[in-house]
Design a binder for these strands. Structure first.
Lengths: 353, 353
DNA sequence: TTGTAAGCGTTATCAC
DNA sequence: GTGATAACGCTTACAA
């Protein structure tokens, strides 16, 4: 097994010191005579010696790597989160494994187990695994959750209530008194949280609020919910996320309904808002911040070794764009005729966060 | 140094065999009696044993990891690519480091150097580094390029010409005789390639084609290009990518121009087409396929050890949706009055691939 | 077919 | 301060 690279032994031999000394010259130079440190380093440089991280990892049990797990990289919620997490980890000297659980708890479980022996810790965004398994893995390796609230496991959460509150305040001010929450999958923790927050806030404002399921968090599901939305006779809707919102916008536009003149739509997450027409009013979840915060929290735990039961809340804010406006007729106008545009293919643009 | 995890020794003890046998049960089961293999595996499962890849790497010099480098995770072109690459690598037993060069050659260089000692190879999508440096790194570790054509370096390219050809055929059939190519950054290899292909194809059809720069590959740049597009008096435009296309759609819609009645728009990549309104006609670049192909090619090179100068072409196809239609007036109508909607914030939705 | 034992390159624990 | 030496967990000749 000839691995040509220069090892600590080569440097030690050439410098006339022991391998331990060479090691120390890099890891604990203050334990050595400055002159020795300098000489060793010079020789190491000459030889082009680079410490082998793998060997170091085997010896220390520290890898300088973390794993970031998400349910679906292609879900627009995650790329900004991944990007920020990666950048933060890189800046702090860590390399990042990326894992995609494809929305399935089993694959998440497998990835956790597979990567555990080569990482210092995990950031798991929107975990799909059940609480017991998460607790188990979190007990093995430092683990930070994003978008899931399990007491005792460090986590980064999004201030859903605050965001929803702002959205409802906004709609109330525009005169809306009967609105809908178009939800995502009933089993989703995020959806439950968002729906509850919406209901609670509406009640506080004396607004009538109907929950309309979209079942799946996709563009198509949003389109499919349009009929139910119109039947509900509301003047505004808050969607589970931007994807569902965009599905609603498309479905409504196809029926000749003009947004926001006839109906106001609020999204959630602010992941594609600005690329839609009309630009979507939405609740900015600062998902990039969540990613960065998750990594920071994890590395702090790793490096201090403390078992902090941290729970960091990422603030949200309402971004007012052009999909919301004042009530005109007071109710949505019924749909005209369905448009011709129906040849849409199935797509991977999912929306569950 | 207590690393609690289960080791090969634990399994060996419980199974009453040597550690070598356990090792072989996982790496070379065909050397063992099937019964032994099965028993060892069962016990390993019971104990929750997972081979320590670091230890394995130290022993074999192979890591079971690859790195995937992209210029910007949040650019919608990449998530499907990353997802497919990750899935393919995972299925073949590899873990994936993800690196984001943030569009800067230097960071790409740094990531390559930093990750090199812990991976078996690289997939670099849309490299920003100059040819010499890429050649250097490719000489050190197996490297596959996506979206960059450097002779001698294995690469996966997209059939831009074919896609453009289909788009122009489509526009020609609809009666368009004067069209525009709204380009991305002039320095981008992808943009040059796309522009050239568009010009060549138009010429073949006897179509008049104007190149309109968008300078940056963003939604905003697309919007900003609208004025120039209208001034050009064309009836259709092919955009550098879907993001720019979507910017055009938004800018045109804001001026009261109806798509495709007044103007036809074709995107490129098919990364957000279905979530827009109207649904975008676009050239599907099959970026997921490119990601999977990149990984497969890399792993083949790693595992066979062959230095193949492979150049794999990913086919494209035109996806006809609703942003293209027959010429009506023959020319675009001039803009009416600019809409009110102008409070758009700067965003990270970039589009350069 | 299976076991023994020598690495892989580093760091940690002792002595000196 | 510095040097032996034993881990770290696994793979792989080489024996048996």
């Amino acid at each position: 097994m000839t691995r040509g690279s220069i090892t600590i032994g080569d440097v030690a031999a050439k410098a006339g010191v022991s391998r331990a000394t060479v090691s120390r010259a890099f890891t604990r130079p203050n334990l050595l005579t400055p002159a020795v440190v300098e000489q060793v380093r010079r020789i190491a440089d000459e030889l082009g010696y680079v410490p082998n991280r793998i060997a170091r990892a085997l010896s220390t049990g520290r890898f300088g790597t973390i794993a970031l797990l998400v349910p679906d990289i292609a879900n627009p919620f995650f790329p900004p989160l991944i990007r920020a997490a990666q950048a933060r980890a890189d800046a702090l000297g860590y390399a990042v494994f990326l894992g995609d659980s494809d929305e399935t708890p089993d694959r998440e479980d497998r990835l956790l187990a597979k990567l555990a022996p080569q990482v210092d810790g995990f950031v798991v965004a929107s975990p799909r695994l059940d609480e017991a398994r998460i607790r188990f893995h979190a007990g093995q390796k430092p683990t930070v959750l994003i978008n899931r609230d399990i007491a005792g496991v460090p986590r980064v959460l999004i201030d859903v209530r605050g965001g929803i509150e702002m959205a409802i305040t906004h709609l109330f001010a525009l005169g809306h008194r009967r609105i809908a929450y178009v939800g995502g999958p009933a089993a989703s923790w995020a959806n439950q949280q968002r729906e509850q927050a919406a209901m609670a806030a509406a009640q506080r404002f004396g607004i009538e609020e109907l929950a309309i399921p979209a079942y799946r968090p996709t563009y198509e599901a949003g389109q499919a919910a349009v009929e139910r939305l119109l039947a509900a006779g509301v003047s505004a809707a808050i969607a589970f996320d931007d994807i569902v919102a965009q599905g609603l916008v498309a479905g409504l536009s196809a029926r000749g309904i003009v947004i926001p003149r006839d109906l106001s739509i609020v999204g959630f997450d602010d992941v594609l808002a600005v690329t839609t027409y009309p630009p979507l009013t939405t609740i900015d979840a600062h998902c990039a911040d969540a990613g960065a915060a998750g990594v920071e929290l994890l590395l702090e735990i790793i490096e201090t070794g403390e078992k902090r039961d941290a729970c960091q809340i990422i603030p949200t804010r309402l971004v007012q764009r052009e999909s919301t406006g004042p009530v005109t007729t007071g109710e949505a106008i019924p749909g005209r005729s369905p448009s011709a545009g129906n040849r849409r293919r199935s797509t991977d643009q999912r929306g569950r966060t």
